[in-house]
Design a protein around this nucleic acid. Structure first.
Length: 238
DNA sequence: ACCCAGGCGCATG
DNA sequence: CATGCGCATGGG
């Protein structure tokens, strides 16, 4: 039995329901006027190899110190930034990455995210990837969750899944997996729907990962075992 | 006391 | 090209 991304998405939706990651519709209980897109970009860097619960605390601290804007973060004392984001781990590197991004946006786009995101998705992605501390997953998270571009985000869980599932193709690298998933989902959904589908699918795979895609063990209690014959597939040998 | 989390940059072979 | 390592806190 082969599993393609469309079937996987359908099954995960039924099993886990909506995930609402970075929906940006919190405006009713956001009293401060920070740009939610910038908050998403900051969150994308802070969550690199880090549990989201740790990132939430860091973002709360940044907000408390009014550092959640391009200008404020650019001008902030680096030691204060480190203190604020301490809970998210790797705070030395991440403080530098946050301020590097802020400096770039300030100097290049006068801190105007509308102007920045106006460019084509391809150009935006290359530009983000050229920045220190922004790799493929962070760039794509920003494109999907901040800029609302139809880009599928590949993470560690997605890579593990693509090895363990009986996929019709052998996709190994980040770009391989991304192109394959996007190619399959484009057949089923319109461009407008794709933003929502990529959003949900990425979140659903991360959620599934908590049950199934741990580095070592394969959890026999995965809710999809009975649905998809997961777990019967051996890890592919190198 | 482990293992792990919504990676990335850099140094090696 | 493809591994390997350091980075660091907090929750299970």
């Amino acid at each position: 039995m082969k599993i393609n991304p469309v079937g996987l998405y359908t099954h995960l939706c039924k099993s886990f329901g909506p995930q609402h990651w970075w929906p940006m519709d919190h405006s009713h209980h956001e009293q401060n006027n920070t740009d939610p897109r910038f908050e998403v970009m900051i969150g994308a860097i802070l969550t690199q190899n880090t549990a989201w619960t740790n990132v939430e605390k860091a973002i709360k601290q940044l907000k408390k110190h009014h550092l959640l804007s391009v200008q404020a973060l650019k001008d902030a004392d680096t030691e204060l930034v480190k203190t604020c984001i301490r809970s998210s781990g790797y705070f030395n590197q991440k403080a530098k990455r946050l301020q590097y991004l802020s400096n770039y946006l300030a100097e290049r786009y006068d801190g105007d995210l509308d102007q920045f995101f106006l460019q084509s998705t391809d150009r935006l992605r290359k530009e983000l990837l050229s920045l220190h501390g922004i790799g493929p997953e962070t760039a794509d998270s920003m494109l999907l969750y901040a800029a609302k571009k139809p880009v599928f985000v590949v993470d560690t869980y997605t890579k593990r899944l693509s090895k363990r599932l009986p996929l019709p193709v052998n996709a190994a690298s980040y770009d391989d997996i991304q192109h394959y998933v996007e190619h399959e989902l484009k057949k089923e959904y319109s461009t407008h729907e794709l933003v929502q589908v990529y959003n949900e699918l990425h979140a659903l795979i991360v959620n599934l990962g908590k049950y199934y895609c741990k580095p070592k063990p394969i959890c026999p209690n995965c809710p999809l075992l009975s649905l998809c014959h997961f777990g019967q597939q051996q890890e592919k040998e190198v």
